[in-house]
């Protein structure tokens, strides 16, 4: 599709979310320019995530000096996930690369990422071979998080926290990031777009300017998001089946309690009020089973309404040569 402004559409869009990185922006632009050369085949989108320093002005200045740089300014600080989604929405290239704005990723890795992507993948994740970060506050939480993500999602990516990744447009059109989903973007892409995923090693530099924007990631939030992620595959097709499993479990527990109460009643011949504890617990489990079934039905209603409002794109599928 020709760009309405008449400018040829670039092949590659590099997306960099920027939050309070005023010193890094000019260096970043220079590094990307050096890595990608003088051609017109790329664009650099600097997504300012409501910075309170001069980042937005630096991005505008870089754009004025080089037409391949495009600033995108968010109205406030929305967090990295939505900043990346804003970049994806604005990107014009068929291939999109995301990276951090703090210069810890090396833009000279971009051509290798793109080449790997074009050899037959929809998402290529970088992993930091020799990570230049503090051990206790950064590396260990990251290691724990990666192990949890692997265990829950089964997507074999050893470094989910590395922002340097390449995507095909087809994959991005099928995923809409929200909450903190950027933390396990490959698994999200696999669950929602059916993307073919691989990873390659990339360089990693220590931080030169500014403050690190992550801290110890909070495990509870991660777990809640991961639970959602594992359920997405079910949500998208048959929510009733998902809730039926829970309902069946509750029903089985109810039956077990029923049996227990029958045995207990036989044995003690109880007529006093305390004897009703077990039958009452039985009823609670059966109640839960009914409740979960009804929630599953509500899920079916929500799914149907959403699909009526907007039909879903088919997952990515490629015919092998």
């Amino acid at each position: 599709m020709p760009d309405p402004s008449g400018v040829t559409r670039p092949h590659l869009s590099v997306i960099v979310p920027v939050f309070n990185e005023e010193e890094n922006v000019p260096l970043l632009v220079a590094a990307v320019r050096e890595a990608l050369g003088d051609g017109d085949s790329w664009e650099l989108l600097l997504v300012d995530d409501g910075s309170t320093d001069r980042s937005a002005a630096e991005a505008a200045a870089a754009a004025a000096a080089d037409p391949r740089v495009r600033p995108v300014e968010l109205a406030r600080n929305y967090g990295q996930t939505l900043a990346m989604q804003a970049g994806f929405d604005q990107a014009r290239g068929d291939v999109v690369v995301s990276m951090d704005g703090d210069l810890q990723n090396d833009p000279s890795d971009i051509p290798r990422l793109v080449a790997t992507l074009e050899s037959g993948y929809d998402l290529v994740a970088g992993y930091r071979e020799r990570r230049q970060d503090k051990l206790v506050t950064r590396k260990i939480p990251s290691w724990v998080a990666n192990r949890i993500i692997l265990a829950v999602t089964g997507v074999r990516i050893r470094d989910n926290g590395c922002s340097l990744k390449a995507y095909r447009r087809a994959a991005l059109e099928r995923m809409h990031l929200y909450s903190d989903m950027h933390r396990f973007l490959p698994a999200f892409a696999a669950a929602t777009a059916g993307a073919r995923i691989t990873e390659i090693p990339v360089r990693h530099h220590p931080r030169r300017f500014g403050q690190s924007k992550y801290g110890l990631s909070r495990i509870f939030k991660l777990l809640a998001d991961l639970l959602t992620l594992t359920m997405i595959a079910w949500f998208r097709e048959r929510p009733l089946a998902l809730f039926s499993i829970g309902a069946a479990t509750a029903f089985a527990l109810g039956l077990a309690f029923l049996g227990w109460s029958a045995v207990a009643m036989q044995r003690f011949e109880q007529a006093s009020a305390t004897g009703y504890v077990l039958p009452a617990a039985t009823l609670l489990w059966l109640l839960l089973a009914c409740y979960l079934l009804m929630l599953g039905l509500i899920g079916e209603v929500a799914l149907r309404r959403a699909r009526e409002a907007k039909p879903e794109l088919l997952p990515i599928a490629v015919e092998r040569a």
Partner: peptide
């Protein structure tokens, strides 16, 4: 909560 997440996702 899961039903809520489902609506958000959809």
């Amino acid at each position: 909560g899961l039903i809520g997440e489902m609506i958000v996702h959809l």
